[in-house]
Nucleic acid binder design. Structure first.
Lengths: 128, 128
DNA sequence: TTCTTATTTCAAATTTTTTTGAAACAATTC
DNA sequence: GAATTGTTTCAAAAAAATTTGAAATAAGAA
Protein backbone atom coordinates (compact mmCIF):
# COMPACT_ATOMS: atom_id res chain seq x y z
CA UNK A 1 0.00 0.00 0.00
CA UNK A 2 1.46 3.25 -1.13
CA UNK A 3 4.59 1.48 -2.27
CA UNK A 4 5.23 1.23 -5.97
CA UNK A 5 7.32 -1.56 -7.38
CA UNK A 6 9.44 -0.60 -10.31
CA UNK A 7 11.72 -2.84 -12.32
CA UNK A 8 14.98 -0.98 -12.82
CA UNK A 9 18.49 -1.23 -14.26
CA UNK A 10 19.59 -4.06 -12.02
CA UNK A 11 16.23 -5.79 -12.22
CA UNK A 12 15.24 -5.46 -8.59
CA UNK A 13 12.13 -3.88 -7.15
CA UNK A 14 12.54 -0.75 -5.10
CA UNK A 15 10.50 1.24 -2.60
CA UNK A 16 8.75 4.30 -3.97
CA UNK A 17 11.06 7.26 -4.29
CA UNK A 18 14.16 5.10 -4.18
CA UNK A 19 14.65 4.94 -7.91
CA UNK A 20 14.40 8.67 -8.43
CA UNK A 21 16.95 9.45 -5.72
CA UNK A 22 19.13 6.66 -6.98
CA UNK A 23 19.02 8.21 -10.44
CA UNK A 24 20.17 11.46 -8.83
CA UNK A 25 23.50 9.84 -8.06
CA UNK A 26 23.76 7.79 -11.22
CA UNK A 27 22.12 4.56 -10.11
CA UNK A 28 24.06 1.56 -8.89
CA UNK A 29 26.84 2.30 -11.35
CA UNK A 30 26.97 5.88 -10.13
CA UNK A 31 27.15 4.75 -6.52
CA UNK A 32 30.02 2.43 -7.30
CA UNK A 33 31.84 5.27 -9.00
CA UNK A 34 31.29 7.62 -6.08
CA UNK A 35 33.04 5.32 -3.61
CA UNK A 36 36.59 6.27 -2.64
CA UNK A 37 39.25 4.44 -4.57
CA UNK A 38 40.25 1.05 -3.29
CA UNK A 39 43.66 2.09 -2.02
CA UNK A 40 42.03 4.71 0.20
CA UNK A 41 39.51 2.23 1.54
CA UNK A 42 42.36 -0.16 2.17
CA UNK A 43 44.38 2.50 4.02
CA UNK A 44 41.41 3.37 6.16
CA UNK A 45 40.86 -0.29 6.93
CA UNK A 46 44.44 -0.72 8.09
CA UNK A 47 44.17 2.17 10.54
CA UNK A 48 40.83 1.02 11.86
CA UNK A 49 42.07 -2.51 12.26
CA UNK A 50 45.13 -1.25 14.11
CA UNK A 51 42.87 0.39 16.68
CA UNK A 52 40.25 -2.35 16.83
CA UNK A 53 41.89 -3.68 19.96
CA UNK A 54 41.80 -2.18 23.45
CA UNK A 55 45.44 -2.84 24.21
CA UNK A 56 46.49 -1.07 21.04
CA UNK A 57 44.26 1.90 21.79
CA UNK A 58 45.86 2.12 25.21
CA UNK A 59 49.30 2.09 23.65
CA UNK A 60 48.33 4.94 21.35
CA UNK A 61 46.97 6.92 24.30
CA UNK A 62 50.11 6.30 26.34
CA UNK A 63 52.33 7.47 23.55
CA UNK A 64 50.26 10.61 23.18
CA UNK A 65 51.44 11.51 26.69
CA UNK A 66 55.10 10.93 25.85
CA UNK A 67 57.40 8.60 23.93
CA UNK A 68 58.02 5.42 25.89
CA UNK A 69 60.29 2.43 25.75
CA UNK A 70 58.85 -1.06 25.43
CA UNK A 71 59.58 -2.02 29.01
CA UNK A 72 57.46 0.82 30.36
CA UNK A 73 54.55 0.11 28.04
CA UNK A 74 54.84 -3.48 29.18
CA UNK A 75 54.70 -2.43 32.84
CA UNK A 76 51.57 -0.36 32.26
CA UNK A 77 49.75 -2.96 30.18
CA UNK A 78 50.95 -5.98 32.16
CA UNK A 79 51.22 -8.34 29.21
CA UNK A 80 54.02 -10.59 27.98
CA UNK A 81 56.90 -9.30 25.88
CA UNK A 82 56.00 -11.20 22.75
CA UNK A 83 52.36 -10.24 23.02
CA UNK A 84 53.30 -6.59 23.34
CA UNK A 85 55.71 -6.91 20.48
CA UNK A 86 52.96 -8.29 18.31
CA UNK A 87 50.68 -5.35 19.05
CA UNK A 88 53.45 -2.83 18.56
CA UNK A 89 54.19 -4.36 15.18
CA UNK A 90 50.60 -3.88 14.05
CA UNK A 91 50.58 -0.26 15.16
CA UNK A 92 53.94 0.26 13.50
CA UNK A 93 52.77 -1.27 10.21
CA UNK A 94 49.73 1.00 10.26
CA UNK A 95 52.03 4.00 10.44
CA UNK A 96 50.47 5.32 13.65
CA UNK A 97 53.62 4.83 15.72
CA UNK A 98 57.32 4.42 15.08
CA UNK A 99 60.19 3.00 17.09
CA UNK A 100 63.69 4.34 17.54
CA UNK A 101 66.53 2.35 19.01
CA UNK A 102 68.29 3.99 21.96
CA UNK A 103 71.03 1.72 23.15
CA UNK A 104 69.52 -1.56 24.22
CA UNK A 105 66.09 0.01 24.33
CA UNK A 106 63.57 0.91 21.68
CA UNK A 107 61.55 4.02 22.28
CA UNK A 108 58.20 4.27 20.56
CA UNK A 109 56.41 7.49 19.72
CA UNK A 110 53.35 8.63 17.82
CA UNK A 111 53.92 9.54 14.20
CA UNK A 112 52.26 12.64 12.76
CA UNK A 113 49.62 10.33 11.35
CA UNK A 114 49.07 8.89 14.81
CA UNK A 115 48.73 12.34 16.34
CA UNK A 116 46.28 13.46 13.66
CA UNK A 117 44.16 10.37 14.07
CA UNK A 118 44.04 10.82 17.81
CA UNK A 119 43.15 14.50 17.46
CA UNK A 120 40.48 14.08 14.82
CA UNK A 121 38.60 10.94 15.63
CA UNK A 122 39.16 10.03 19.18
CA UNK A 123 37.81 13.20 20.71
CA UNK A 124 34.50 12.73 18.99
CA UNK A 125 34.01 9.69 21.20
CA UNK A 126 35.59 10.84 24.46
CA UNK A 127 33.96 14.23 24.65
CA UNK A 128 30.56 12.73 25.25
CA UNK B 1 77.79 4.06 26.20
CA UNK B 2 76.40 7.30 27.47
CA UNK B 3 73.35 5.44 28.72
CA UNK B 4 72.81 5.27 32.46
CA UNK B 5 71.01 2.35 33.99
CA UNK B 6 68.83 3.21 36.93
CA UNK B 7 66.78 0.84 39.07
CA UNK B 8 63.36 2.42 39.56
CA UNK B 9 59.92 1.92 41.05
CA UNK B 10 59.03 -1.12 38.99
CA UNK B 11 62.53 -2.53 39.23
CA UNK B 12 63.45 -2.30 35.58
CA UNK B 13 66.38 -0.50 34.00
CA UNK B 14 65.66 2.51 31.83
CA UNK B 15 67.47 4.58 29.24
CA UNK B 16 68.93 7.85 30.45
CA UNK B 17 66.33 10.58 30.70
CA UNK B 18 63.47 8.13 30.73
CA UNK B 19 63.03 8.08 34.46
CA UNK B 20 62.93 11.87 34.81
CA UNK B 21 60.31 12.26 32.10
CA UNK B 22 58.38 9.33 33.50
CA UNK B 23 58.39 11.04 36.88
CA UNK B 24 56.93 14.08 35.17
CA UNK B 25 53.75 12.15 34.50
CA UNK B 26 53.71 10.21 37.75
CA UNK B 27 55.65 7.11 36.75
CA UNK B 28 53.99 3.90 35.66
CA UNK B 29 51.16 4.48 38.13
CA UNK B 30 50.69 7.96 36.76
CA UNK B 31 50.60 6.68 33.20
CA UNK B 32 47.95 4.14 34.08
CA UNK B 33 45.88 6.86 35.69
CA UNK B 34 46.21 9.12 32.65
CA UNK B 35 44.67 6.56 30.30
CA UNK B 36 41.03 7.15 29.30
CA UNK B 37 38.57 5.17 31.32
CA UNK B 38 37.86 1.65 30.20
CA UNK B 39 34.37 2.32 28.88
CA UNK B 40 35.75 5.00 26.55
CA UNK B 41 38.48 2.70 25.31
CA UNK B 42 35.86 0.04 24.79
CA UNK B 43 33.61 2.42 22.83
CA UNK B 44 36.49 3.48 20.65
CA UNK B 45 37.36 -0.15 20.04
CA UNK B 46 33.85 -0.95 18.90
CA UNK B 47 33.85 1.83 16.32
CA UNK B 48 37.29 0.94 15.05
CA UNK B 49 36.38 -2.70 14.83
CA UNK B 50 33.22 -1.81 12.91
CA UNK B 51 35.33 -0.09 10.28
CA UNK B 52 38.18 -2.57 10.26
CA UNK B 53 36.70 -4.19 7.17
CA UNK B 54 36.68 -2.83 3.62
CA UNK B 55 33.10 -3.86 2.87
CA UNK B 56 31.89 -2.05 5.96
CA UNK B 57 33.84 1.07 5.09
CA UNK B 58 32.23 1.00 1.66
CA UNK B 59 28.79 0.71 3.22
CA UNK B 60 29.49 3.72 5.40
CA UNK B 61 30.69 5.70 2.38
CA UNK B 62 27.62 4.72 0.33
CA UNK B 63 25.28 5.79 3.09
CA UNK B 64 27.06 9.12 3.33
CA UNK B 65 25.81 9.75 -0.22
CA UNK B 66 22.23 8.87 0.63
CA UNK B 67 20.14 6.41 2.64
CA UNK B 68 19.84 3.11 0.81
CA UNK B 69 17.85 -0.06 1.05
CA UNK B 70 19.59 -3.40 1.52
CA UNK B 71 18.99 -4.57 -2.02
CA UNK B 72 20.85 -1.60 -3.47
CA UNK B 73 23.79 -1.93 -1.11
CA UNK B 74 23.83 -5.57 -2.11
CA UNK B 75 23.92 -4.67 -5.81
CA UNK B 76 26.83 -2.28 -5.31
CA UNK B 77 28.86 -4.60 -3.11
CA UNK B 78 28.00 -7.79 -4.97
CA UNK B 79 27.90 -10.04 -1.92
CA UNK B 80 25.30 -12.49 -0.62
CA UNK B 81 22.30 -11.40 1.41
CA UNK B 82 23.36 -13.07 4.63
CA UNK B 83 26.91 -11.81 4.32
CA UNK B 84 25.65 -8.28 3.86
CA UNK B 85 23.25 -8.70 6.72
CA UNK B 86 26.12 -9.73 8.96
CA UNK B 87 28.13 -6.62 8.10
CA UNK B 88 25.11 -4.37 8.48
CA UNK B 89 24.50 -5.82 11.93
CA UNK B 90 28.02 -4.97 13.05
CA UNK B 91 27.71 -1.41 11.79
CA UNK B 92 24.31 -1.14 13.43
CA UNK B 93 25.61 -2.41 16.78
CA UNK B 94 28.41 0.13 16.65
CA UNK B 95 25.84 2.89 16.33
CA UNK B 96 27.27 4.23 13.08
CA UNK B 97 24.21 3.35 11.01
CA UNK B 98 20.55 2.61 11.65
CA UNK B 99 17.83 0.86 9.69
CA UNK B 100 14.21 1.85 9.17
CA UNK B 101 11.57 -0.45 7.77
CA UNK B 102 9.70 0.90 4.74
CA UNK B 103 7.19 -1.65 3.63
CA UNK B 104 9.00 -4.82 2.71
CA UNK B 105 12.29 -2.96 2.54
CA UNK B 106 14.69 -1.72 5.17
CA UNK B 107 16.42 1.53 4.47
CA UNK B 108 19.72 2.17 6.18
CA UNK B 109 21.20 5.58 6.90
CA UNK B 110 24.13 7.07 8.76
CA UNK B 111 23.45 8.05 12.35
CA UNK B 112 24.81 11.36 13.66
CA UNK B 113 27.64 9.37 15.17
CA UNK B 114 28.34 7.87 11.77
CA UNK B 115 28.37 11.26 10.11
CA UNK B 116 30.68 12.70 12.75
CA UNK B 117 33.09 9.84 12.46
CA UNK B 118 33.18 10.15 8.71
CA UNK B 119 33.72 13.91 8.92
CA UNK B 120 36.38 13.87 11.58
CA UNK B 121 38.59 10.92 10.96
CA UNK B 122 38.14 9.71 7.48
CA UNK B 123 39.13 12.88 5.71
CA UNK B 124 42.50 12.88 7.41
CA UNK B 125 43.29 9.81 5.32
CA UNK B 126 41.59 10.67 2.04
CA UNK B 127 42.86 14.21 1.71
CA UNK B 128 46.41 13.04 1.15
C1' DT C 1 84.77 -12.97 24.52
C1' DT C 2 81.06 -14.19 27.51
C1' DC C 3 77.12 -12.66 30.03
C1' DT C 4 73.04 -9.99 30.69
C1' DT C 5 69.16 -7.37 29.33
C1' DA C 6 65.69 -5.61 25.88
C1' DT C 7 63.21 -6.80 22.20
C1' DT C 8 61.66 -9.40 18.24
C1' DT C 9 60.60 -13.54 15.60
C1' DC C 10 58.68 -18.05 14.91
C1' DA C 11 55.53 -21.90 14.93
C1' DA C 12 51.89 -24.13 17.29
C1' DA C 13 47.68 -23.65 19.93
C1' DT C 14 43.73 -20.94 20.80
C1' DT C 15 40.26 -17.66 20.03
C1' DT C 16 37.64 -14.65 17.22
C1' DT C 17 35.73 -13.21 13.03
C1' DT C 18 33.83 -14.04 8.65
C1' DT C 19 31.56 -16.76 5.15
C1' DT C 20 28.12 -20.03 3.57
C1' DG C 21 23.73 -22.01 2.78
C1' DA C 22 19.50 -23.31 4.73
C1' DA C 23 15.70 -21.98 7.32
C1' DA C 24 12.91 -18.46 9.53
C1' DC C 25 10.43 -14.14 9.57
C1' DA C 26 7.91 -10.17 8.03
C1' DA C 27 5.40 -7.32 4.79
C1' DT C 28 2.76 -7.60 0.48
C1' DT C 29 0.36 -9.18 -3.24
C1' DC C 30 -2.66 -12.59 -5.43
C1' DG D 1 -5.24 -18.13 2.98
C1' DA D 2 -1.11 -19.25 -0.27
C1' DA D 3 2.64 -17.43 -2.76
C1' DT D 4 6.29 -13.94 -3.31
C1' DT D 5 9.92 -10.83 -2.12
C1' DG D 6 13.28 -8.64 1.08
C1' DT D 7 15.78 -9.35 4.98
C1' DT D 8 17.52 -11.61 9.08
C1' DT D 9 18.95 -15.54 11.90
C1' DC D 10 21.26 -19.78 12.77
C1' DA D 11 24.74 -23.30 12.94
C1' DA D 12 28.60 -25.30 10.70
C1' DA D 13 32.79 -24.51 8.01
C1' DA D 14 36.53 -21.63 6.80
C1' DA D 15 39.64 -18.00 7.44
C1' DA D 16 42.01 -14.67 10.10
C1' DA D 17 43.73 -12.69 14.33
C1' DT D 18 45.71 -13.36 18.79
C1' DT D 19 48.22 -15.65 22.46
C1' DT D 20 51.88 -18.53 24.11
C1' DG D 21 56.42 -20.01 25.04
C1' DA D 22 60.77 -20.99 23.17
C1' DA D 23 64.44 -19.45 20.43
C1' DA D 24 66.87 -15.78 17.96
C1' DT D 25 68.90 -11.17 17.70
C1' DA D 26 71.05 -7.04 19.07
C1' DA D 27 73.39 -3.85 22.18
C1' DG D 28 76.16 -3.21 26.01
C1' DA D 29 78.67 -4.37 30.15
C1' DA D 30 81.99 -7.30 32.44
Amino acid sequence: MGIKKIKNEINIFLPEGAEESLCGCGGVKGLKALLPKDSDIEALGVIHHALADKKRIKILCMLSIQPLCVCIIRAVLEISDSRLSYHLSILKKSGLISGEQKGTWITYSLTDKGKEWLDSGINSVFVK
